[in-house]
Nucleic acid binder design. Structure first.
Lengths: 320, 320
DNA sequence: GTGAAAGCGCTAACAT
DNA sequence: ATGTTAGCGCTTTCAC
C-alpha cells in the first residue's frame, strides 16, 4: 500500500524516530538529511496526517463555515483568510450550510470530527448554539461578519450601524427625503444593524415618518422583487440597499422600470457594485474592507489557538 | 480531554467493539443502541476521524482544488458538487492555488496528506503532472471544466469548441462580419477551444481575414482592457468574449466608450451575464450547464472511488 | 450480540 | 544524534 515512515527507515537504514525528527525540525546529520530526502523522492512518500494528528491532537487545519459557498462576499473573505493561514502552515476545510441552522450544526460536527484546530464561521445561528460543541471540545471559534451573543467567540465585524447611518445621511444631504430601505431578514445581524443605522439617520433628520422597509431574500432576485414593490408603490427619492446581491437586483429592477439608480433616484448599495457603475455613474456603495476582514479573522484564530483570549474587532467601512 | 469511544464503553457498560459496531451498522441490541445514543448525547461524543481513517484508510472526504476560490464560476460548480457529495456522506476540503502550477502541486500534496478519497480539480497544469502524485497513491481524480492530457483522469467538460462556433455563427447570421475575439491566455484549455471555435466559424463564413484576437487576464479588469484596446483600434461590429468575468469587463469598457453592447455592436459573452441585461438587452451569452457540471463531477468521483473506470463526459452549453 | 486483543502510522519521552 | 518503546482512538478479526 502507501509508503510509510517505516519504509523510509528501511530505505535509509535509520529508525522511524529519526525520520520523524527530520520532519519536526529535530537535529539530524546533514548526510542523513540528504539520504532521507532522497528516499522521500524515490518512494514518493506522503505523510499520513491521520496518524500524526492522532498523536498530536493537532491538524494544522482550520474549519471554515459559510452560509453559501457561491456567494461572492463570503468567498472574497475566505480567499484572503486562506492566503494568510497558508503562510502560517495551516490549510482550510470549507463547508457551506445553505443558510440553514440545522446544517450549520451538522457541518460543525463534521469539522470537529476532522479535528480542526479552530473554526472560522459566518454564523447562521445568532445564539451560536451550534458553536457550543466546538467550545466544549476546546476548539476556538471566530465569527466573521455577524455578531453572536456568545462571549466565548471572537468577533470580526464592521461598524454596520454607523456606516449605514453615514450612508443614509449622505443620501439625505443630497436632498433625498423619501428614502426606502431594502434589507432582507432583519433577524440576520447585518441586516438588523444596517436597518437600525438607516432608522437613526432618518430620525435624526426628522424623517421618521418616511421610514419604509422592504423585505426580500438575500439574492439578486430578492433585491429585484423588493425594489419593484417599493418603486411601484410609493415612488421613492432614494434607495438604501443593505447587501451586495440585493443591490444588484435593485438596480436592475429600477432600470426595468425606466429609472436610473443614482440618476433619477439616489442609490446607496453595499460592497463592490463597480460592475454596474458605467451604467449608473451616480450610484454609491458602502464598501466593506473585505480583505482586511479575512486577514484579521485568520490572525485572530491563530492567536486563539496559541492560547490568546477571545477578541471583538470592529473594522470601518468606507463609502464611495 | 476529548471524549472517546472508551468513555462511551465505560458509561454504557459495553466494550469499544460494540460501540464501534453501533457506528458501523453492526448488529446491536435495541436497548444497547438506546444506551449508546444516550451516552453520546450526555458526553458530547464526537468521533475522531483521524483514528478511524488511520484504521480504514478512508476519509469519506473529497479534495477540491480550484484556480481561485473567489471566482463565481468555480464556486457555483462546487456548490452543486458539495450538495451531491454530502448526500452520499462525503465532505469536501477546498483549496485554491491562485492559478499557479506550483501551488497546485503543493495543494495536491496537502490534500493527499489529508487522506482524501478522491480529488476534483479544475486543473491549472494541462499536463496534469501535479495529479501524478494522486494517481500514484491510488486516489482517483476528476478534472472539471478543463481537459488535460492524462488519460488516467476523468474529465467533465462542455462542448467548448462547438458551442463557441455556434455562438459566433449566431453573430454572423445577424449580419456581423468584423467580429473580434477576447479570450485570455490561449494555453488555458477553455480559452484555446473557444478561440478555435470562433476561428472555425469565421473561416467557414469566409471571414478568415477578419479574425482578431485580444489577450487579457481572466478578470473583469482584463476584459475591460482588452475590449478597450479592440474597440479603440478597429471598430468591430461584434465582440465574442470567452469567459464570464471578461464579458462583464468588456461590456463596461464598451459603455465607457459610449457603445452599448448588444445594441450598437453585437455581443456574445459567457455564462450568467443576466445582471447586465437590463442595461444591454441585446447581449447574448453561452450558458454552461454549471449545476450539471458540478453534479456530474460528484457522481463521477464516487463511481471511480467504487472502482469504476475513468470517464470522459461532455455536456452541451446553450446560447441565450 | 458482545468481548479481547492487535495494529493502522506517527510522535515523544527516555535511554544510549 | 539516533534508537527503543509506548500509545494516540479507532476498527476488525476471532472467540465466545
Amino acid at each position: 500500500m502507501s509508503v510509510t515512515i517505516k519504509d523510509l527507515a528501511k530505505e535509509t537504514g535509520l529508525t522511524p524516530a529519526t525520520i520523524s525528527a527530520y520532519f519536526n525540525g529535530g537535529n539530524v546529520r546533514d548526510y542523513n538529511k540528504a539520504k532521507i530526502e532522497e528516499a522521500i523522492e524515490k518512494l514518493g512518500y506522503i505523510r499520513n496526517d491521520f496518524a500524526r494528528g492522532l498523536r498530536t491532537h493537532k491538524s494544522r487545519t482550520i474549519g471554515v463555515l459559510l452560509p453559501e459557498i457561491a456567494n461572492k462576499f463570503s468567498t472574497s473573505i475566505i480567499s484572503e483568510t486562506e492566503e494568510s493561514l497558508r503562510m502560517k502552515g495551516y490549510g482550510i476545510i470549507v463547508c457551506d450550510c445553505r443558510s440553514s441552522v440545522k446544517r450549520e450544526k451538522e457541518a460543525i460536527r463534521f469539522l470537529l470530527s476532522k479535528m480542526v484546530d479552530g473554526l472560522i464561521v459566518i454564523p447562521e445561528d445568532t445564539s451560536a448554539n451550534a458553536c457550543l460543541a466546538a467550545a466544549q471540545n476546546g476548539v476556538p471559534v471566530v465569527a466573521v461578519d455577524r455578531r453572536t451573543g456568545n462571549p466565548a467567540l471572537s468577533h470580526v465585524v464592521i461598524n454596520n450601524r454607523e456606516a449605514s447611518k453615514n450612508a443614509v445621511n449622505m443620501l439625505i444631504e443630497r436632498g433625498a427625503k423619501e428614502i426606502a430601505a431594502i434589507c432582507g431578514d432583519l433577524n440576520v445581524y447585518t441586516a438588523g444593524e444596517r436597518f437600525a443605522g438607516y432608522c437613526e439617520a432618518m430620525k435624526e433628520a426628522g424623517l421618521e415618518e418616511n421610514i419604509t422597509y422592504a423585505n426580500g431574500a438575500f439574492s439578486v432576485q430578492g433585491g429585484y422583487d423588493a425594489a419593484k414593490k417599493v418603486l411601484e408603490g410609493n415612488p421613492a427619492q432614494a434607495l438604501f440597499v443593505s447587501n451586495y446581491e440585493m443591490s444588484v437586483g435593485a438596480v436592475m429592477a429600477a432600470k426595468d422600470m425606466g429609472i436610473i439608480a443614482g440618476g433619477d433616484i439616489g442609490f446607496m448599495g453595499f460592497d463592490d457594485i463597480d460592475y454596474i457603475k458605467p451604467f449608473c455613474p451616480g450610484i454609491l456603495g458602502v464598501r466593506q474592507p473585505i480583505k482586511e476582514l479575512g486577514r484579521v479573522a485568520a490572525e485572530t484564530i491563530i492567536s486563539m489557538i496559541d492560547g490568546g483570549p477571545a477578541r471583538n474587532i470592529v473594522l470601518n467601512a468606507e463609502i464611495r
